[in-house]
């Protein structure tokens, strides 16, 4: 099993939030859906990471009361914590993406000749 560096999970979470505000469970679902189930961010990876992003000012948070369907309208619902990408978070994401592109280009430079080589032998 491959283990991703924390750097990658930050990139993944920030990019999910770039699509709009979201909350913990929806973020984990979005990651699983976007990666076709190949990426999984465990709860003990995701929630501490979200807290860290909040502390770094990359995301802002707000609470919303969620009422169950058919529940007593006067009863208190459960609380949902929403995460929104801050302007600083947007900048950080752009930096991450750029760094990732550069890294990818660099890796491609190494990998491409090898692939061609293999094809030549095939």
């Amino acid at each position: 099993m491959l283990t991703l560096k924390q750097d990658h999970s930050t990139l993944i979470v920030l990019s999910v939030l770039a699509d709009g505000p979201s909350y913990g469970y929806a973020i984990s679902k979005a990651i699983a859906a976007k990666s076709d189930g190949h990426f999984k961010l465990t709860a003990s990876g995701m929630y501490p990471l979200l807290t860290k992003l909040e502390k770094q000012g990359l995301v802002t948070t707000s609470w919303e009361e969620v009422k169950a369907e058919g529940a007593d309208p006067d009863a208190t619902g459960r609380r949902r914590k929403w995460y929104t990408l801050s302007p600083k978070g947007h900048k950080q994401l752009a930096k991450h993406i750029e760094a990732n592109r550069q890294m990818q280009a660099l890796l491609d430079a190494f990998v491409a000749p090898a692939v061609n080589d293999q094809n030549a032998h095939a």
């Binding site: 099993m1 283990t3 699983a32 999984k40 003990s44």
Partner: peptide, 11 residues
Amino acid sequence: PGATEAIVVET
């Protein structure tokens, strides 16, 4: 559900 070979991301 639907996850094949999951890549687990740990902090």
